[in-house]
Design a binder for these strands. Structure first.
Length: 266
DNA sequence: AATGGGACCTGCGCGC
DNA sequence: TGCGCGCAGGTCCCAT
């Protein structure tokens, strides 16, 4: 479940590890993850080019290449980038000029690898709403005031605000003491302020700890991120709320498991 | 128009 | 023991 903090962590890890290295060869073990162009073309496009820069847009990784093109990676739910890779579970393996491999692993094959001339032209990217760190309190208040959806679903809507998924939506709502099922437009100005503040706090703290390793996410090194032990609600069903000592509950909301504290979140 | 639910996949853990 | 089922949750697509 890589969300903004996990993708940001991998982006920073990549910058330290693979910048200016050349892709010597690409091995494709499952072509399903290659989108838009055929696997043979994908291999040819990458052979011999250097990795020039890495950026992140919401949950998407964009790797700038010396050819002027971009390797655009969406990890979706179980995607991993591992370097040096062991090629054990890899779907696509990039052999680099240092003799090591950068592996793309993805248990569920939802991940997406693309080569694009212009990454900004990707439809998904164009439809993305603003990232939380680019929003002012006034922007956020105005955005919420028009929406009749449940607040948690809205936070996960990438066209509304980008980078937040199921885990950080839950943690942010707990931080702001807001119940996940509240109608967005019903939040008071004070609650909206608390929510944007909580989102920024939770995301930046998660980045500091290298993201949350639940299920599949690992850092580039293959090691887990450490934010899980700072979770207040996610994955803590039945455990005690760290604020009020009441039990954390789990409910289904929009088909997603939703953790919250019924006593703290109103 | 906005919203909700199913589909896309695989592997794990659970109950019988 | 083994099998089938539900669940994990990012995004797209379709129906309402």
């Amino acid at each position: 479940m890589p969300e903004l903090p996990e993708v940001e962590t991998i982006k920073r890890d990549l910058e330290k590890a693979v910048l200016d290295k050349k892709i010597v060869e690409v091995r494709i073990y499952n072509p399903m993850v290659i989108r838009q162009i055929n696997p043979e073309k994908f291999r040819k496009e990458l052979a011999g080019v250097k990795i020039k820069n890495v950026r992140r847009k919401a949950k998407v990784l964009v790797i700038g290449l010396s050819s002027g093109k971009f390797l655009v990676i969406h990890l979706k739910m179980t995607g991993q980038l591992v370097y040096p890779g062991d090629a054990k579970n890899s779907r696509v393996s990039f052999l680099l000029s240092d003799g090591k491999t950068l592996d793309f692993n993805d248990q569920r094959l939802f991940g997406e690898l693309r080569i694009l001339d212009d990454w900004r032209s990707l439809k998904f990217i164009q439809r993305l709403g603003p990232e939380p760190f680019d929003l002012s309190q006034d922007d956020f208040k105005e955005m919420l005031s028009r929406k009749k959806t449940k607040i948690k679903s809205l936070l996960m809507d990438q066209t509304f605000i980008s980078g937040i998924g199921n885990l950080y939506a839950a943690e942010s709502l707990f931080g702001a003491r807001i119940h996940p099922e509240r109608v967005a437009s019903s939040l008071s100005d004070k609650e909206k302020e608390a929510l944007l503040g909580a989102i920024k706090n939770v995301l930046s703290s998660a980045i500091t700890y290298g993201g949350s390793s639940v299920d599949n996410y690992v850092r580039l090194s293959g090691k887990p991120g450490d934010y899980v032990r700072h979770h207040k609600v996610y994955g803590r069903e039945g455990k005690l709320c760290l604020v009020c000592s009441g039990p954390i509950k789990k409910m289904m909301l929009g088909g997603r498991g939703t953790y919250f504290c019924p006593r703290c979140q109103k």
